[in-house]
Every structure is written in structure tokens, then in C-alpha cells.
Design a protein around this nucleic acid. Structure first.
Length: 815
RNA sequence: GCCGGGGUGGUGGAAUGGUAGACACGGCGGACUUAAAAUCCGCUGCCGAAAGGCGUGUGGGUUCGAAUCCCACCCCCGGCACCA
């Protein structure tokens, strides 16, 4: 008897050995057959949870598979270490964020190692290291110099109780502070932005990437391009310089139906046009709008609100006077901050008009319209009516005709508007990259000179919430001199959004110790773009859009080549608790991977995660199936180490074994190419079951058996790297299995000798007959007709048709 | 409301126009064992004694043949949501 499979022993043994041998260290200077496999870097939240395993273990399997297929695979890892969770945890525990973060890094490194993944730790990068964030600052300065970073006033969530700025996630859905329950208000602060809108059109081009359709659609909607017309409405207010209100519309065809002009409450014209008798009401409305968070303001559940300013503008096409209102559904930052209200053809305007008693003239007639009033807005195609010279044409033609006319008259022009806003990058927080700018009373915004980078994050700042950016209270940090004039100046005290780190971390991995730039240009050229990126779909419109934007910025700086950073993207599904709910400590449904690894071993745990279902679906994690994987790996162990008692060789059985081996190689290869781990494992289980059946009889050829075991163990290697390495050594394979070639298959050997011919009568299965694989049509049909089970259903009825699918099926149509 | 994904045995799932339920869990039976665990072998969609019938969310359609394609509807999950 061979000794039993003891996962914990062999796993520790091989971790040590692999590390000593630097088995997974890649020399990037050789980029032959390179393949960059990247997994989203983990946040330093503390312990590795099942979600990390679910994201990373299959990624590792995929990277290992690529390696065995002959690629030089770079598979790096690092830590996303800045950000609010660390700061909050530090505040709660009264320890420094750096201490909390780096202790977590140490713990997580150990947990990550237990997975047995082939990460190249020699290329690790941590975003909170000064040598990393130095280059965030460098990039910021470059972007400032190119006009891609700019400063302007923008509202931030402000908690008047805690006297602090809150991130959106810290504001509860009812608009209160998650910490103290006070009502959060909007407060304007000078903040930094990146001009992502400059790249909006380019970001809509997805032709150079193989990404899930879902993510592409989400990004497309997020960018939200709409084509329309910007058109002026006349303003004649005594003493007012402004002679027009500009609106953006995608429906120029409805312009004759305008019965109101609605401005955003913050629109700069509002205080200038409001009549004295409306002033009090208008100001009260603006004040209440400002008190609401954007989430509340944009809720579609709410009834429409608004107030009349007392002023009117002129519809230049119809000549009509139009009352000017303000309402919070008009958004200052979208379009021109003004909406033309067409109640008959826009549901939102319809509700607004209903509430305030505004008229609702129809200008696009529905096909069967009898002239009666509408019950709701009509937004379908129709014929133009009540639209002066444009009457009688379809509204689609009307769109063009009116846009042409407006452009001819010089009242406006066709434009494109985007939903996406510039990227607000300022955070009024401590634990992040300091923005490397200086505010000089004489020279204004001045960038810190490159040779003074990094602007270090002071370790002794008071990071507990006080009402200001933590760095603003640190005198030593705050007070500096102007790089231009040497006079006294103040440092910028905001830090950067941590999505800045994830913009380029994968490039830092290439040369984490490089100090002449963010990354070595020659390695960037040889190893980018990333061939395969894997991670969660929750990053669809933040990280995955920012990183594409930033890549294009780097490209325009001449630092990288090509249109996109990631050729292929794969989103794994989300793993839920056994109850089907998101895992959380408060629900008590958290499965701790460490315990499971302790109990079953990393190989079993990895394989089980891959076996429960398709990788992109995720789903509830129940432990009750894990014994199936445990048994399977035990059977692989036994099959590999306890061969049959070879005796009289049966040729057919030997051919059968070879067929099983080659067939499995084909199936597993195809499945692994598509990351279909569950079916790949099922195929390996079937092969293992087949080997067991053969082993009982012991009538196969020795070499067919050892070929089968060799292939089985190699195909198991990407999934369960430790047990396969151990078995490989024990069956006498050269170290390391992870450097061996992937099994190939021979199509001739895969071919079956016999097939099951399914016989149907009128589409219902009536018999299954074993026939030689090469059977011809005539023989197949005759065999089918001869079947007694078939005869019963055919007899006495005319055969109308016989359908034959070669080697598979005969369908006899009677009646 | 809009966009995307999905609905298959007791359970996780397989099958993308041709044998529905691969593989696995669980269950049942057997072998081994003093016994249990582990291990090994067999059976296991539902109804039916059998013959056979029924069966992939619901209803209809296309086809010799539909889980798979088309139409309508219901439900679940994810994302976006007053975008002019």
C-alpha cells in the first residue's frame, strides 16, 4: 500500500521548494512568447476571503495552463493599499493607517501563498509605498502641464455634525451621515479634475478589445453620448446683457410644442432674471435643492417640483413667449443646464406641466390621432402638426429640417453631449497620494518640481475627522515656499482618488524598483498591453473606464503603444454565502477560506471553487459538495501510484484506454481555453473513473497506462498544482511539472469504433442501436427499420420520410 | 422604467437544432470491517406492476426533430435610472 494523500504536508513542502528555486520568477528581459496575465490587485482589507480565492485561484489555473502551453507567462501581484477603509479602520482602532495596512499586507501575503499560485513576488508593488505614489504625483504634474488636470469648485457631501467631507458610500440612501445620522448637505469646495471627457469619443471605440458585452454596454451607457441640437431662446430683460438662453435637445422636431423653459436651480442666469415678486420663493427653492444630495434629487419616485421665476423667453421659431421656471430635475452639468419643456412629447415634461397647469399642445400627431388631449406623453414617430412651415412631414424629417433651419438662422448648431462628467480626483482625506501642487498667492497653482518628488505623506498628521482635510492641519506639511518665486505658499492638502493607483499599477509591476520613471520603457514596449485581465464586474464603469482613459493619456505622452491596456477581460461571478446572500460578518454567513484550506488543503479548495459552476456566474457557496473533489483527488493519487497488476494484454481495452486519454486531452484543452473549469474537471473525473475501471481488469498495455497517468497528472497541474507536482515526482517525471508541455491529442485515436445510433419514429426515441462508427446511410436506415421496437410504431403506416444524421440518428416519419 | 444575465432532478450543474439530466453532492442497496469512518461496486428525473406516458418558468409558433430558434407573458439576479 502506498501512503495516503496528505495535502497539508505536500503543500507546505512544495511552497518552500518552489520559492527556493524561484520557479515562478520570470526574466522579463526575454519577452519571447510573452503573455501578460493580470488579476485585479487585492485591497489590503485584512483577511483573504472566499471572493479573493474565487477571483484568483482560477486565474492562477489559467496562467499555469498558458505556461504549459508554451507561453512565457508574467503573473504578478501587488496590493491596493491607500483609501478610506484603511483610514476608517485606523480611526476605529486608534492605530495609524500605515501600520494597519502593512500588517494586513503581511498577513495577506501568507494567505495568498497558501493558495499555491504562481505569482512572481519579485515584481510586487504596493500603492502606499512612496516609490509607487511618487509616480502618481509625477503623472499628475504631467497632466496638469498638458491641461488635463484642472481645478474648479464642486460640491462635496458635507456632514455638519461631524464637520467632515463624506464619500458617497458614507452617505446613507436617505441622505444622512452613516456615522452620526445627521442630514448631509452639499458644500462647494475647490477640487481637482481630470479631463476624461476629452477622450469620451475615443473611449466609445471598443473595437480593439475582447471584453464581455455587458461591460462594454455599461461603459457605453455611462459615457452616454447623445446627438442633438443646441438652440437659443430669446431673452429680452431690461438691463441684462445676456440675450439668449441656450438649451440642448435631442428632439428639435418638438420645438413648436415648448410651453416652458426649465433651468437648473444653480443656473447662473437664475438670479439675474428672477422678478422681484418671485425672488423669495425662488431663493427658498434653491436653498432646499442644495440641501439634498444628488441621489435624492435624482430619484424618479419623487413628484415634480419647481417654481416660476416670473421671467419669459421667446421661442424664436414660433415667436411665442415661454415662461421660465426652475426645477431640480434640470441638471446644471448636463447639456446647457436648461431644458425646453415639451409636455406632449416628453413624459417628464408632461408630469411637470400637469402639476403646474401648463398647456400641452400636440406637435407630433400619432398615426390615428383624433385631435383629443393626450393621457401621457407621445414619444413615438408621427407627423408634424402645429409647427408652422414644417407641418405635414414626418418627425424624423422634421428633426433634420428644424436643425438645418436653426443653423441657417444662426440660432444654434448641432452638438454632441455626454453624460459622463470629468473625473473628480480630489479627496479630503489623509490616506492617499498627496496632490503635488502648491498654492502661491502670486503665481496661483504651481506644480511641485519633479526633482522634489515624492511629496511625502507625513506620518504624524492627525487623520481623525476634524472638519478639514487632515493635511490642512499639519503645519509642517501645509506651509512651504513657491517653486517659482520662493515666497511663502501653501501646499494642496487634498489627496488623490485611489483609482489613480489602479490606472497604471500593472505597468509598475514590470519594473517595481525602477527610479527613472514610472516603468522601464523597454519592458513596457515588450510586455504591454496586458493579454488577459480578470476581476470583478463591480469595476465596470469606474476602474475599467479610468484605466482606459489613463492608458490613452500615457499613449499621448509617448510612454506606451496601442489603443487599449487590456486585450481581453474576463469577469468572474460573485460568490455568495450559503444562504444566497452577500457574505458579511453581520449576517454570519462568511466562509473563511483559511479554515477550509486547513481542513481539505488548497488543491481541494481551489478545485471545488472551480467545480461549482461556470466561473462567470458565481453563486452561493455551499460546502456540501467539496467531498466530491476530495474523493476525486484521492482517486487521482491512488490511480497514479497504484498501477494495475499487468497481465494478458487485451488490444481492444488498450485502444479504449488510449482513446480515453486522447479524448480527455481534447475536452480539457477546449474547456481550459474558455475557462470552463467545471466541465474540465468533470472530464478529468470521468477519465479517473475510467482508469479505475481499467485498473480492476489489468488487461492493458503498460505504456498506454503510463501515458494515461502522465497526461492526467499534467492536466490536473494547473488546477491542483501541489498534488500534481508530488505525483509527478513520484512517477518519476522531471522537475517541475509546471514546466512540462501540455498533453496533445491525436484525432485518429479519439475516434470511436462504435457509435450509438438513435432511432426515432416521428421524433420520439424508440431504440438505440450500437453500430460501427463508419456505417453508411443505407445500412444505418436498414438497421433502424429492422429494429423490433421501431417496427411496432411503423407497421401499417406509410413512411413519408426518413431523416439521417450521419453516425447519430435516424428519424422515420410516418402517418 | 431602460439595459444585461438567467429560470433544467431533492441540490450544484451538463447539454447551443439531433439520446435531456454528463460530472458531482445527497439518498438507497451491496462488498470490506467486531463496529464505525474511510475505501470499492451498483442503482437513483417523475408517474406506472409493466407496456408505456410525462418532463427543461408559462402559453403559442417554426421544424422530421426544440432546453436550444421566433413571438407573447411571468419570476429571479446584476447594472443604470428625471440625461433634456
Amino acid at each position: 500500500m502506498t501512503e495516503r494523500y496528505r495535502p497539508q504536508e505536500i503543500e507546505n513542502k512544495w511552497h518552500k521548494k518552489w520559492e527556493e528555486d524561484a520557479l515562478y520568477t520570470v526574466d522579463l528581459d526575454d519577452s519571447t512568447d510573452h503573455f501578460y496575465f493580470l488579476t485585479m490587485l487585492p485591497y489590503t482589507s485584512g483577511d483573504l476571503h472566499v471572493g479573493h480565492w474565487y477571483a484568483m485561484a482560477p486565474s492562477d489555473a489559467a496562467a499555469r495552463y498558458k505556461r504549459m502551453r508554451g507561453k512565457r507567462v508574467f503573473f504578478p501581484i501587488g496590493f491596493d493599499a491607500f483609501g478610506l477603509p484603511a483610514e476608517n479602520a485606523a480611526i476605529k482602532r486608534g492605530i495609524h493607517p500605515r501600520k494597519w495596512t502593512y500588517e494586513n499586507v503581511d498577513r495577506m501575503r501568507g494567505q495568498l501563498r497558501s493558495m499555491g499560485a504562481m505569482w512572481d513576488w519579485s515584481h510586487e508593488a504596493i500603492s502606499a509605498d512612496p516609490e509607487f505614489y511618487r509616480w502618481n504625483q509625477w503623472f499628475f504634474i504631467k497632466m496638469f502641464e498638458k491641461g488635463l488636470a484642472y481645478r474648479k469648485k464642486a460640491p462635496a457631501n458635507w456632514c455638519p455634525q461631524d464637520q467632515t467631507v463624506l464619500a458617497n458610500e458614507q452617505v446613507l440612501p436617505n441622505g444622512t451621515c452613516e456615522r452620526c445620522g445627521a442630514t448631509v448637505v452639499q458644500r462647494d469646495l475647490e477640487q481637482w479634475f481630470f479631463r476624461i471627457r476629452n477622450y469620451a469619443d475615443e473611449l466609445l471605440d471598443f473595437s480593439h478589445m475582447e471584453w464581455p458585452e455587458q461591460i462594454v454596454t455599461m461603459q457605453r451607457n455611462w459615457i452616454g453620448r447623445s446627438e442633438g441640437l443646441e438652440v437659443e431662446f430669446g431673452l429680452e430683460i431690461p438691463g441684462l446683457e445676456e440675450k439668449a438662453i441656450r438649451v440642448f435637445t435631442t428632439r428639435p422636431d418638438t420645438i413648436f410644442g415648448v410651453t416652458s423653459m426649465v433651468l437648473a436651480p444653480e443656473h447662473p442666469l437664475v438670479p439675474l432674471i428672477t422678478t422681484p415678486d418671485r425672488k423669495a420663493e425662488v431663493e427658498a427653492y434653491i436653498a432646499q435643492a442644495r440641501r439634498q444630495t444628488e441621489i435624492e434629487r435624482l430619484s424618479t419616485e419623487r413628484e415634480k417640483t419647481g417654481v416660476f421665476t416670473g421671467a419669459y423667453c421667446k421661442n424664436l421659431l414660433s415667436g411665442e413667449q415661454v415662461p421660465i421656471w426652475i426645477a431640480d430635475y434640470a441638471l446644471l452639468w448636463y447639456g446647457t443646464g436648461a431644458v425646453m419643456g415639451v409636455p406632449a412629447h416628453d413624459q417628464r415634461d408632461f408630469e411637470f406641466a400637469q402639476k403646474f397647469g401648463l398647456p400641452c399642445p400636440v406637435v407630433i400627431a400619432p398615426p390615428d390621432w383624433d385631435g383629443s388631449a393626450l393621457e401621457e406623453a407621445y414619444t413615438e414617430p408621427g407627423t408634424m402638426v402645429n409647427s408652422g412651415q414644417f407641418d405635414g412631414i414626418t418627425n424624423e424629417d422634421g428633426k433634420k429640417a428644424i436643425a438645418d433651419y436653426v443653423e441657417q438662422q444662426g440660432w444654434g448648431k448641432r452638438t454632441v453631449t455626454y453624460r459622463i462628467r470629468d473625473w473628480l480626483i480630489s479627496r479630503q482625506r489623509y490616506w492617499g497620494t498627496p496632490i503635488p501642487m502648491v498654492h502661491c498667492p502670486v503665481h496661483g497653482e504651481v506644480a511641485v518640481p519633479e526633482d522634489e518628488l515624492p511629496v511625502l505623506l507625513p506620518e504624524d498628521a492627525e487623520f481623525k475627522p476634524t472638519g478639514e482635510s487632515p493635511l490642512a492641519r499639519h503645519e509642517g506639511f501645509l506651509n512651504t515656499t513657491c517653486p517659482k518665486c520662493g515666497g511663502p505658499a501653501r501646499r494642496e492638502t487634498d489627496t488623490m482618488d485611489t483609482f489613480m493607483d489602479s490606472n497604471w499599477y500593472f505597468m509598475r509591476y514590470l519594473s517595481p524598483d525602477y527610479s527613472d520613471g514610472p516603468f522601464r520603457p523597454d519592458l513596457a514596449e515588450a510586455w504591454s498591453p496586458v493579454d488577459q485581465y480578470t476581476g470583478g464586474a463591480e469595476h465596470a464603469v469606474m476602474h475599467l473606464l479610468y484605466v482606459r482613459f489613463f492608458w490613452k493619456v500615457m499613449r499621448d505622452m509617448g510612454m506606451v503603444e496601442g489603443p487599449e491596456p487590456f486585450k481581453r477581460l474576463f469577469n468572474q461571478g460573485q460568490i455568495l454565502g450559503p444562504d444566497g446572500q452577500r457574505m458579511s460578518k453581520s449576517r454570519g454567513n462568511v466562509v473563511a477560506p483559511d479554515e477550509q484550506v486547513q481542513k481539505y488543503g488548497a488543491d481541494t479548495f481551489r478545485c471545488y471553487l472551480m467545480f461549482i459552476g461556470p466561473w462567470d456566474e458565481g453563486g452561493p457557496f455551499r460546502l456540501d459538495g467539496i467531498s466530491g473533489i476530495e474523493r476525486w483527488l484521492n482517486r487521482v493519487w491512488t490511480a497514479a501510484l497504484e498501477p494495475p497488476k499487468f497481465g494478458q494484454v487485451d488490444e481492444a481495452a488498450t485502444r479504449g484506454l488510449r482513446r480515453l486519454t486522447h479524448k480527455t486531452a481534447r475536452r480539457v484543452t477546449e474547456d481550459m481555453d474558455e475557462y470552463r473549469w467545471n466541465t474540465a474537471i468533470a472530464a478529468l473525473m470521468e477519465m479517473t473513473n475510467g482508469l479505475y475501471a481499467v485498473r480492476e481488469k489489468g488487461v492493458v498495455d503498460r505504456s498506454a497506462w503510463s501515458d494515461a497517468i502522465s497526461a492526467l497528472v499534467r492536466m490536473t497541474a494547473p488546477l491542483a498544482p501541489h498534488i500534481s507536482e508530488e505525483l509527478w515526482e513520484r512517477i518519476g517525471g522531471p522537475y517541475s511539472i509546471h514546466q512540462q508541455a501540455w498533453p496533445t491529442w491525436d484525432a485518429d485515436l479519439v475516434r470511436e469504433e462504435e457509435v450509438t445510433l438513435v432511432v426515432q419514429v416521428n421524433g420520439k426515441v424508440r431504440d438505440r442501436i450500437q453500430v460501427p462508427a463508419g456505417i453508411d446511410e443505407e445500412t444505418a436506415k436498414a438497421t433502424a427499420m429492422a429494429s423490433p421496437h421501431v417496427k411496432r410504431y411503423v407497421e401499417g403506416q406509410p413512411v413519408r420520410r426518413v431523416v439521417y444524421i450521419p453516425g447519430k440518428l435516424v428519424n422515420i416519419v410516418v402517418g
